[in-house]
Amino acid sequence: MSELLIEIKDLECRIDDQKILQGLNLKINKGEVHAIMGPNGSGKSTLSSVLAGNDNYEVTNGSINFLGEEISEMSPEERSWKGMFLAFQYPVEIPGVSNINFLRTALNERNKFYGIDSIPAKEFLKMVAEKSELVGLNNKLKNRSVNEGFSGGEKKRNEIFQMAMLDPKLSILDETDSGLDIDALKIVANGVNKLKSSENATVVITHYQRLLDYIVPDFVHVLHEGKIIKTGDKSLALELEKKGYDWLKTDSNI
């Protein structure tokens, strides 16, 4: 019997006056991989932002229960400490702040929250060496400023590297495949697969079925107008690739 990780109920949210999520329901157990697909503007990226706690979006209804706790009022950092990780579609550049310093700060802040001592430099560096190997991150990139001057592929790898360092319970990969060539895609997917365990879960948000060849989902959800309108197994993704989304839209209207 698998253990419940997150349960989203009737989630509604808006930005400015525009309603985006309109009653979204989703349950994810530990050990599972979920893919969320859907046409442009269906609310995929909004969902990831809302789960991570971006306060540009106002949650107007519903609940998000993460590991037995309601988190919809929680700050982004606290969610992060609890094990939520978002791999950004467009990773942000922070000039002058090295990747290493950034991660060390992140880890120590979490330790502080849990009343644990700061991680000793030696141990930290060992961890960096191990985890960066996972995605073949160039050593130089670790000492460069966060994402500054990184290529598209380097940025995405850096996201997975950070994910490995923070070891989250729930990882949301927001269009991590966009802008990646096939080799980079394999490396990123390989990293994600290695991090998979019976204790964590992954949500893959994507446009294309391609990524799902490498990160195989247990469930595929189709998002449309802020709602999940169909759920299936990985064959649904193949079907979508062939037929597009229109047949589903008409379906849901009936």
Binding site: A52, G53, N54, S75, P76, E77, R79, S80, W81, M84, F85, L86, F88, P91, V92, E93, I94, P95, G96, V97, N101, F102, L103, T105, A106, L107, E109, R110, F113, S145, Q162, L166
Partner: peptide, 27 residues
């Protein structure tokens, strides 16, 4: 965006500001 990115990684707002400002002034 920088602030939110830092916070998503578990860095509190105050700490994030200090981090970003120090990075900005690093040169």
């Amino acid at each position: 965006e920088q602030l939110f990115y830092c916070m998503q990684r578990g860095i509190s707002e105050e700490k994030a500001i200090s981090l970003i400002v120090n990075g900005y002034a690093k040169e």
